[in-house]
Write a protein that binds this DNA or RNA. Structure first.
Ligand SMILES: [Mn+2]
Ligand SMILES: [Mn+2]
Ligand SMILES: [Zn+2]
Ligand SMILES: [Zn+2]
Lengths: 127, 127
DNA sequence: AATGATTCTGCGAATGATTCGCAAATTAAG
DNA sequence: CTTAATTTGCGAATCATTCGCAGAATCATT
């Protein structure tokens, strides 16, 4: 049972994620940190992102170019609406999905255990 | 305007996809081909998968280990229900999603352009 | 069926994101 | 302040995927 030390580099990575509210790759986070003269190694950025994703405090997504990106996230089950202009991520709760779940069970004999969804478009601010 | 030649290696890759009906990585396809003494190079498997995905005849998905996997697919808009036991992929059409779309517009001012969904569970045959 | 232009294939080398190994630096506790 | 546990940073190693290119296949024309 490894204890968790609270360290400055980890807080710096977390701070970026909380501030940006959009999907960022390890390299982008590393770049943003360097720009503000916070020297955190790329390795530590990767390790911190894995930690946050493991704890459910960040959610991962592989972008179109194949890079893994992360956004700050709360534990409750929900989905994301990503603005294609500014990148801003908005949480979406999904009552309507339950009907899809029952349809799956009814029409195809599929026992649904889990699902993933993502929405893309333009956010209110960018319209 | 480059023409497309119809070749044996490409048909061999397509045949595997049509036969298996589940998400396969380039390496897995390459392995299955070798097992049946069909020597197609891994490069050609990759290139063929890109082609099929580009034409919309295959759909890609990055699996948990970070590998890109492909399944045979028709062009119409739909989603996939993946069996966690046997891997079999079942098409799902989504009438209920439209309500989510309008909810997004109404509640959050988000102009929805596109969405992705995936379902996981146990298929009828595996229950 | 032979020719020539275009498109593929296979191979090995290059790429690029992510992971590892390990010594030095930080943190938490006593 | 000392010590044990954890973390960091660095460069090297991994591993899936992409490239470059010479030789093979395919297609359209004689
Ligand atoms: Mn979220
Ligand atoms: Mn399909
Ligand atoms: Zn926006
Ligand atoms: Zn099944």
């Amino acid at each position: 049972m490894r204890a968790q030390y609270s360290t400055k580099p980890r807080e710096q990575v977390s701070a970026i994620l909380k501030r940006e509210q959009r999907y960022l790759s390890a390299a982008e986070i590393h770049g943003l940190l360097r720009k503000s003269r916070q020297n955190v190694s790329l390795s530590t950025v990767y390790r911190t992102l894995d930690l946050l994703a493991g704890k459910g405090e960040a959610s991962a997504r592989v972008d179109a170019g194949g890079e893994t990106t992360y956004v700050v996230c709360d534990q409750t089950h929900h989905h994301h609406a990503v603005c294609r202009k500014c990148g801003k991520v908005q949480d979406v709760s999904c009552e309507a999905i339950e009907s899809v779940a029952s349809a799956l069970r009814t029409h195809h004999g599929f026992k649904l255990a889990d699902h993933e969804m993502q929405f893309f478009g333009t956010c209110g601010a960018c319209k």
